[in-house]
Simulated scan of single mutants.
Amino acid sequence: MNKEAVIDTAAAARHARFGKLPERIRLEDTTQGVDTGLEAKVGSRYNPEGQWQYYSCLALDLGL
C-alpha cells in the first residue's frame, strides 16, 4: 500500500511539471529579417569559373 502512495506522489510531481504544453510561439517571433548591403550581394554570387578553388577531395589532398 505504501508503494502506491509513492507512485501517486511521483505521478503527481510529473504532472505538475510536465502536465501542460508550453505557450505557442508565433512565427513572427522566431524569424529575423536583416538587410544586407550591396557588397554582400556581389561577393555571394555564384562564380562557376572560381568554384575549383573551393573543391575538396581527399584523393587530391593526398596526392593520389
Score class of each variant (00 low, 15 high):
E49D: 13
E23W: 02
A12E: 05
G43E: 07
G19Q: 03
T36M: 03
V42M: 10
Y55N: 07
L60Y: 02
D8H: 12
L21R: 11
E23A: 15
D35W: 01
T31E: 04
V6L: 14
G43K: 15
R14M: 09
E23D: 15
A40Y: 10
G43P: 02
R45N: 06
A16V: 11
V34Q: 02
A16I: 00
I7N: 13
D35R: 14
A5L: 10
L38H: 10
W52A: 14
K3P: 04
V6M: 13
Q32W: 04
K20A: 15
R17I: 04
L60V: 12
Q32S: 03
S44N: 12
V6E: 13
A12L: 09
S56Q: 08
R26P: 01
A16M: 05
A11Q: 07
L62E: 04
P22K: 01
A59W: 10
E49T: 07
Q32G: 08
A11V: 11
D35H: 04
L62W: 05
T9G: 12
L21F: 08
T9M: 13
T9I: 06
V42G: 09
R17D: 02
A13D: 05
A12W: 00
T30G: 06
V6D: 14
D8P: 01
V42E: 10
L27D: 07
T30V: 06
W52G: 10
L60M: 10
Y54V: 05
Y54D: 07
V42N: 02
D61K: 11
A59F: 14
G33S: 09
A11G: 04
E39N: 13
G43H: 10
G50K: 12
E39C: 02
T36F: 13
V34I: 15
E23C: 01
I25F: 10
P22H: 06
G50V: 00
